[in-house]
């Protein structure tokens, strides 16, 4: 299949970027990233600088790959990362526009590569359970209802790719933050710190310059792990309880 690619090229954060057009000969069994490999191989053969994009595991779990394909983070398929998107979902002669994640908190580094360390800092602000190595009791000492563990898992499935931020018209990281707040808050082990955790994480999220949630649901629709919007409601609840309900004056 012959494709026209329009790819965002930007040398570095300081420079201005633009879409550039390329012709690529692809095959329907290729993954989207393998199609980009073909493009890059041909660019290198022409002694040009290949398109920089992030990718690693190529099996949909590391969260590295991040590109907006025809306006949709990770492309048109539901619950699919870019690396798992296969070319059989495109047609011969298609024009595909590939852009980087866009959000103020994700500055562009080069081409399609952006800096997502803001997400790391949200986790560092409180996305953990404060237990040192060796302090744990027997793993079966606390029984956890099967459904409750499953609920925590559904939130914990987040791969930290940032598609929620990229999809959100407000550049909000609520879904990412909520997924961690709900994962840990749902487990009895993490319930203990929930109040301080949710406040710290929301504060950090605000500080990083992410936008505010207006409940458009764009994040949920483009999340490759299909993390639910209900997590945001749960986080709102936890935050309100922590801010208004706790005795702490901060």
């Amino acid at each position: 299949m012959k494709l026209t690619l329009k790819v965002w090229r930007q040398q570095n954060n300081a420079s201005k970027g633009a879409l550039e057009s390329y012709q690529v000969e692809a095959n329907e069994h290729m993954s989207f990233l393998e199609m980009l490999d073909v493009l890059n191989q041909s660019l290198v053969e022409e002694k040009k600088v290949p398109v920089a994009f992030e990718h690693d595991c190529r099996e949909g779990i590391c969260g590295s790959c991040n590109m907006v394909i025809n306006g949709r983070p990770h492309g048109p398929n539901q619950g699919t990362t870019t690396c798992q998107l296969h070319m059989r979902y495109f047609k011969d002669g298609d024009t595909i526009v590939v852009e980087p994640w866009r959000a103020k908190a994700f500055p562009v580094i080069k081409d399609l590569v952006v800096d997502r360390s803001s997400l790391d800092r949200i986790i560092q602000s409180g996305g953990y359970i404060s237990v040192n190595t060796g302090q744990a009791q027997d793993a079966n000492a606390i029984a956890i209802e099967k459904d409750r563990a499953a609920h925590a898992f559904d939130a914990a499935a987040c791969i930290g790719c940032g598609a929620c931020v990229a999809a959100c018209p407000n550049g909000s990281a609520m879904l990412f933050t909520a997924a961690k707040v709900v994962h840990l808050g749902t487990m009895p082990q993490g319930e203990v710190e929930e109040s301080t955790r949710v406040q710290a994480m929301v504060n950090q999220m605000d500080e990083e310059g992410f936008g505010m949630c207006s409940n458009t649901g764009a994040c949920e629709a483009d999340c490759p792990k299909e993390i639910s919007l209900t997590n945001i409601a749960e986080m709102n609840r936890a935050y309100l309880a922590a801010s208004l309900g706790s005795q702490k004056k901060s």
Binding site: G134, A136, A139, E145, K146, A149, A150
Partner: peptide, 22 residues
């Protein structure tokens, strides 16, 4: 054995039986 204890304490959502045990 310590690893499983440690990870459970960190909030790793391991699969569970209906009785709530691992």
């Amino acid at each position: 054995r310590n690893i499983i204890d440690q990870c459970a304490a960190q909030g790793v959502p391991f699969a569970r039986e209906y009785g709530g045990l691992l």
